[in-house]
Design a protein around this nucleic acid. Sequence first.
DNA 1: CAGTGGTCTAGACCACAGA
DNA 2: CTGTGGTCTAGACCACTGA
Lengths: 231, 231
Amino acid sequence: MAGHVTYREVKATILDRIKGGAWPPGALLPSEVELAAEFGTARATVSRAMRDLVEDGLVERKRKAGTRVRKMPLRQARLDIPLVRVEVEDQGAVYRYALVASHVGAAPDWLRARMGLPGGGEVRHILCMHFADGQPYQFEDRWISLDSAPDARAADFTAEGPNEWLVRQVPYSNVEISFSATAADAEQAQHLGCALGDALFRVERQTSWDGRELTFVRLTYHRGYRMTARY
Amino acid sequence: MAGHVTYREVKATILDRIKGGAWPPGALLPSEVELAAEFGTARATVSRAMRDLVEDGLVERKRKAGTRVRKMPLRQARLDIPLVRVEVEDQGAVYRYALVASHVGAAPDWLRARMGLPGGGEVRHILCMHFADGQPYQFEDRWISLDSAPDARAADFTAEGPNEWLVRQVPYSNVEISFSATAADAEQAQHLGCALGDALFRVERQTSWDGRELTFVRLTYHRGYRMTARY
DNA sequence: CAGTGGTCTAGACCACAGA
DNA sequence: CTGTGGTCTAGACCACTGA
C-alpha cells in the first residue's frame, strides 16, 4: 500500500475541478459516497474535505439536495485583531504606551444608549496613546462599565493599556466591531500629530461578557494607516 | 441509552470551563484520551470539538505538548465581502448601477508597479457608481488587466458592474484586501455628493487568479459608511 | 524514547428535505 | 419514502516534538 489518500488531497482535487471549470458555478457535485469510491477513501475523508470547502465559501451543501458550487462565491476575509502592542512589535517597531487621562463618573447618555447600560451606572473613562518607534500610532478612547467590571475602578493604567488588562480579566467575550472613516477633531489631531479634519481610520468595538456590556472603545489610527487581509 | 454525547456538547462544556475560570489562560487541558473517557465519547468526538476551539482562537494545540488555553485570545473577525448589489438589497434598499466612464489603454506606471504587470500591458479602466435608494453608495474605480482577462476588452459594463461580470468569469481567486480612510478628491466628492476633503471609507482590493494579477479596484464609500462584524 | 495530537477506516444510525 | 449530508464509534497508524 502506498498510504492513504488524505483529505487535503481530496480537497485540492475538488478545488482544481472547480477552478478548471469542470464543475461550474451552480453545478451539482457527486455525492460523498460516489466521491469516496472514486478517490478510494472512506466517506469521512471526503466529508472532511467538503467541510473545509464549505468554510472557504466555495460550495453549499443541503441534505438530500446534495453539494453545489456556489454561484456567487461568498468570500469572507479573516481579520486578525491583535493587541496594539503585538501589532506594532510584529512590524519590528518599538512599542510605547502612554496614559493621557482617566476618570470615573456617571455614564453619559449617548454611551448608556449605545451600551444599553442601566441608569446611574458608573464608568471609567480612559484616554491613552500607543506609539510605534516614537511616532503616534493609535489614539484610544475607552469606557469601561464599573457595574460589569468593578475591578477596573482601582486598576492602574499608567504602565499598561486597558486592553491588555481587560484581556487578562476576561478570557472570553462577544464583540461587535465596526470600521469607518472620521475627520480628525482637535484632540485627535493633537495626539496623532496631524491636521484638523484629516481623514483617519477608526475602529469602534463593543465587548460584552456573560450577557453584560463590558466596554466600548473607539480607536483612531494615525494618518495613512491601512488594515490588510488576504483570502 | 439516551443517545450519544455530541461534539457540540463537549465543546460547550469545555468552553464553560474556560469562561468560568476552571482552566485559566495558559492552563494545560487534559489530553484527548482523558477527556474522551470523562465525557464517555470516542476520541474523534473530543478532537472535533477541539478543532472548533482552535478555530475560534481559544486554545492552542501542539503535539506532545498538549492543549493550552491561549494567553492572549487571538480573535479574528470574519468579514463577509458581498457584491455591492447584494449588500444594498440586504438592507432593503433599491440598488441602482451606473457606468461613469470606461476606456482601454496602457497601464500607468503606478498600477504596473502595484499589480506587477509586464511592460506594455494593456488594461481596461472603469469608473462606475452604485446607488442605494437613489443615494450614492459606492464609487468604484477599477482596472482590469487585459493580458489576464482578454474578454474584458469587449465586455459591456453599461447594465452590470464589472464585479458581477468578473465573478461569473472567475470562480475562484486570491485576494488581498485593505481598508483605510481617505480625504475625498474632486471626482469622489462630485459622485458621492459630499464636500471636498470629507473623510471617506475606502477599500482597495487586488485579485489574482491562477498566479496572474487580474484586477485592482478602489472602492470609496459614501460619507458615514460603516463596515460591521461580530465575533 | 514516549506521549500528544492528526488523520484515516469501516461501519452505523440519524435528521432533514426533495420527489 | 428515500437519498443526502451530519455525526459518532472503535480502532489503528502516523508525525511531531518535548523530556
